[in-house]
Nucleic acid binder design. Structure first.
Lengths: 148, 148
DNA sequence: TATCGGGCTTCCCACCGTTGGAAGGTCAAC
DNA sequence: GTTGACCTTCCAACGGTGGGAAGCCCGATA
């Protein structure tokens, strides 16, 4: 199998396969007499593994770790679980951050009159920075007290 | 004000201020006779705006857009809202993706015996790819399953 | 006044993962 | 033999940010 066929079979682009080889994530592939890289079914299997792990958001570093465990017959499943859960934690953290942004933006957008007048709480917030939580008091513009 | 003072006052690092200038997000700052950049309160104001927008996850491109609207006195608040909501959509999309990853990983981790034996459903999944919906196993959809 | 520390200037490099392209060799089909 | 699709290597770009080197400038102190 040459690199293009391995790419098609694994879902990893030829570019990325070369990149993974260069950075040492996968070993150097064999070569034909004319210099073409050659791949086996096993190589494709490994590439699929990588692809799947990338789809799950693992970094290349983490994948290197996982590949080590994968090929280690005396691995402890607890080690794999630890990698996975550490990753989950990181993902959850990101989700939390994104949701905070989303909430802020939605609140601001809700207050926006959404017409052709220039007054805009979104820009006002960008100007002035985060305002103390006034959740629930959507009604009056002036009664924004409650800084508890 | 020189660049360091503007950085401290705005929360944008001196490095990034120069970067924003080079890429055209902000105009070229004035200079002293000896070549130091000079900033006014207004410039700092703008930098704070940028900083806040970055904190809310807007891309530099979107910020350019927002800055245009900000300085446009005849802007329509609807235009600003559109930018914000488009951004919210993108953020939500990202959250959805991340949550899908999290769910998959949590489900797999839950099934992992978490000991020193090598059998591991996580690695098995990475080997074999996503398994068809095994809806029988979960209590909650976004299984907040115990991580312990 | 000479010196010293810290800040400013420009410039290039690195990250991460991925894509694009150019220049040139190779393979297979016609 | 020609053509077109593939392979090879190398170089660059993206977005945003940080690090660092070399050299100039400013203010304060001895």
């Amino acid at each position: 199998m040459n690199i293009g066929q391995a790419a098609d079979a694994s879902g990893v682009s030829a570019k990325m396969i070369r990149y993974y080889e260069k950075t040492g994530l996968i070993g150097a592939a064999g070569r034909t007499a004319s210099g073409y890289r050659v791949y086996s079914e096993q190589d494709v299997h490994k590439l699929k593994f990588i692809r799947r792990a990338r789809d799950l958001g693992f970094s290349v570093d983490q994948i290197q770790n996982l590949l080590g465990l994968w090929s280690d017959r005396s691995r402890a499943s607890a080690d794999v679980k630890a990698v996975a859960l550490e990753h989950v934690e990181r993902l959850c953290h990101k989700v939390t951050e994104l949701q905070a942004m989303i909430q802020t933006l939605k609140e601001l957008a809700d207050k926006c009159s959404d017409n052709d007048r220039p007054e805009c709480p979104i820009l006002q917030d960008l100007e002035e920075g985060p305002q103390p939580d006034c959740a629930g008091t959507g009604e009056t513009l002036f009664g924004v007290g409650r800084i508890s």
